[in-house]
Amino acid sequence: MRNIFLSITRPLSLPHWWQDVLLAVPRIYMGVLMSFYFGSSKFGLPWSPAEKNLGFFEVAFWFPGDVAEYGGVFALAPAFLAWMAAFSEAVGGLFLIIGFQTRLFSFLIACTMVVAAFVQHGGHELWQQLPATGFLWVSLFTMVLGSGRIGLDFIISKKISHV
């Protein structure tokens, strides 16, 4: 169990500190956008806009309907999938900022962005797919690398390894 946790948590170590700092920039920026802009407008967090009237950890009323319209598997459990997608953005974004369970939340965000880019905006102009694909590419990198040295995962995995 400990080994599984460590393999998910422990980031890949890059040769130099500056490389970790540089790679933390897109991860943290993406986390801010996800948690404080895109995610918080459809998932209830303390900083969600007041006019959205979202309760804590509530998903916006219109989102399950949108998900159901994608059809197929999305129509089977739209509330669950909408909640997961909104949670991935809002809470996942926050965890990306602090670099906690970076791989796990990168995976959730990547799944959400695949759907956003290629299902929600599938067939639309490329410009409309661009935000979601941008997040997707960053999340693929963070899924492989983890948080790097700039994140809680680095501290946690170091402490656990020494126990």
Partner: peptide, 10 residues
């Protein structure tokens, strides 16, 4: 989980 998240819709 499915029922729980349904309850978490605004």
């Amino acid at each position: 989980i499915a029922l729980g998240t349904t309850a978490c819709v605004q």
